[in-house]
Amino acid sequence: MDKRLKSALIKPARSMLNSLPILVGIILLIGLVNTLIPRSFYAYLFSRNVILDSIIGSGLGSIFAGNPITSYILGGELLKQGISLVVVTSFLVAWVTVGLVQLPAEALLLGRKFAIWRNILSFIFSIVVAIITVLIWKLL
């Protein structure tokens, strides 16, 4: 087999295999949470206003790290629980743009000020992007 093709097959396979236990764990956890936690809990957690709820959504997305697929599965399930699309979007965007876990490495290699400001801006952007996206989505 062509060496380049072999490498192109191995790398994604390895990446998916590495993500597999986390994904299986997350899906099992969703099953547990969905059965044990009443819907009223989500209503309690996200029932203030769009901005405040989005801050909570972005906050959760910033803390969690890992394959974005996990965030889609979690986001999709949150949506089914009645959480607003703005909150879910801010959660999805923060998951992939804010990297608290990678912050030390980013600061070390790209500069402390840059890394901190990039993450702060990405956090704010996750809320703004979520509001604009849902506004356009509703208008179209």
């Binding site: 899906i27 099992l28 969703i30 099953g31 547990l32 969905n34 059965t35 044990l36 599965i73 399930e77």
Partner: peptide
């Protein structure tokens, strides 16, 4: 029920 829900996903 937890496992059934996870299996559906």
């Amino acid at each position: 029920p937890c496992l059934k829900f996870s299996l559906r996903i």
